[in-house]
């Protein structure tokens, strides 16, 4: 749905239910937005039907992104990431592999540090909940923009709903154990690359192999 905004999507979902997408003229979309139909967007549907496939198509190897960030954060953001404006951190879709070193559940922001990721200069951890902090999933998906919501609270609630979908992905994967080998697509965000670690939010475990080597940022 790269050509539609959330206003479009909300209206389309209302009009055609689950039967598919139909682009509508911008003036109708504007009317829909003005009448408060933005809230009709379904986070679960968007996550499953749009965001996960988008991540598959656009995730770059974590090692490649990490190297690029080391060299020049702004250039890395431009090449691999998405930053809607300076009000948001830069968010990166990545594909990563590694083995679980341990499960750190001392905080509700649970983490599974990973070994063998190929990233040498920074620790890498998978965020496993139950608290998924931040808005990286929302911010990394280019068809979601604040201007389409026009209300910070609604925009934030939609991000929380997407993080709920991440929790569901983690729960569906089942309990992690030390020594398990993982392969997953994930997202993380950063303001300037100075973070002490890569903390990855998974959106899909064991994604299908990427057949298009041009999977580009």
């Amino acid at each position: 749905m790269s050509t539609v905004t959330i206003k479009h999507a909300a209206l389309v979902l209302l009009l055609v239910g689950s039967s598919g997408f139909t682009l509508v003229p911008r003036d109708e979309v504007a009317q829909a937005g003005a009448s408060g139909q933005r809230a009709a967007l379904d986070a679960g549907q968007l996550f499953g039907q749009d965001i996960v496939p988008y991540a598959r198509a656009h995730a770059a190897p974590l090692t490649e992104v990490a190297r690029a960030i080391d060299e020049d954060f702004d250039a890395a953001c431009q090449r691999y990431g998405r930053q809607a404006s300076q009000a948001f951190p830069c968010s990166f879709w990545v594909h990563a592999q590694g083995s679980v070193e341990s499960i750190d559940s001392g905080s509700r922001v649970g983490k599974a540090p990973l070994a063998g990721t190929g990233v040498e200069d920074k620790p890498v951890a998978l965020l496993v909940g139950p608290v998924i902090p931040g808005t990286a999933v929302r911010d990394a998906f280019p068809d979601l923009s604040y201007d389409d919501f026009g209300d910070q609270g609604a925009f934030a609630r939609f991000s929380s709903a997407l993080n709920d979908q991440v929790r569901a992905v983690i729960e569906a994967r089942g309990p992690l154990e030390a020594g398990q080998q993982l392969s997953f697509n994930a997202v993380f965000s950063a303001w300037d690359g100075s973070d002490a670690a890569f903390e990855l939010i998974p959106v899909e475990f064991d994604p299908p192999p990427v057949t298009d080597q041009g999977a580009a940022p």
Partner: peptide, 17 residues
């Protein structure tokens, strides 16, 4: 929407979060 030329505000959600 469409009344002001532009509306510039702080990302209060990001800041508060």
């Amino acid at each position: 929407d469409g009344v002001a030329l532009a509306q510039l505000t702080h990302n209060n959600v990001q800041a508060a979060s």
